[in-house]
């Protein structure tokens, strides 16, 4: 079980998290919701180990984490398939299958700096899903996707989470519902 106990975090004297507590069962999908600037991304970054809390305790975070960041954070000079290969050590034929599922077939060997914003987002999502992780962190993963693609990609994520723990930050409750989130946390 992942436990965040009484987490406090401030940025330049601005209190972002005030005694924030969260318990997540292994294999559970949790949605963190709330207004912009209220610390949703901070929670994910603390769990990912990217930032340290000012105080509080974190336990049970698995070693292997994958993440969709707020920005795509792709290797822009590399092809879509190489982005996955170099970060996840995944098999190329598997990657092609995943690309097909999110509507990126035919784009596998093109450099991602030729992709549209929505296509880059899908590569970032496939990367997080294909990584051998026990915990998936999704920070507004479906941002910038058109309605049809968004629906397709949410279903892709739901079908491929498996029994991994997943924490999603979103503004859209329907995303959390499709992903069958057991907890809705409002910050």
């Amino acid at each position: 079980m992942i436990k965040l106990i009484n987490i406090n975090k401030s940025f330049d004297n601005l209190k972002v998290l005030n005694s924030f507590t969260l318990n997540i069962e292994n294999g559970e999908t949790v949605a963190i919701m709330g207004k912009s600037g209220e610390g949703k991304t901070t929670v994910l970054n603390i769990i990912a180990g990217l930032i340290k809390p000012d105080s509080g305790e974190i336990t049970g975070v698995p070693q292997n984490i994958s993440m969709v960041f707020q920005e795509n954070r792709l290797l822009n000079e590399f092809s879509g398939i190489d982005n996955i290969v170099h970060t996840c050590n995944a098999n190329k034929s598997d990657i092609k299958n995943h690309f097909k599922l999110v509507g990126l077939e035919g784009w596998e060997y093109k450099p991602v700096n030729e992709y549209s914003g929505g296509m880059k987002r899908r590569v970032a999502i496939v990367r997080a899903i294909m990584a051998k992780s026990d915990l998936i962190l999704l920070d507004e993963p479906f941002k910038g996707l058109d309605a049809d693609t968004k629906f397709k990609v949410i279903n892709y994520v739901r079908d491929n989470i498996g029994n991994r723990t997943c924490i999603i930050v979103t503004h859209d409750i329907s995303e959390a519902n499709i992903l069958k989130a057991k907890q809705l946390i409002n910050i």
Partner: peptide, 12 residues
């Protein structure tokens, strides 16, 4: 730095 963070998370 954001790419380096990504590399850390994915343990590249």
């Amino acid at each position: 730095i954001k790419l380096l963070e990504m590399a850390n998370v994915f343990k590249m």
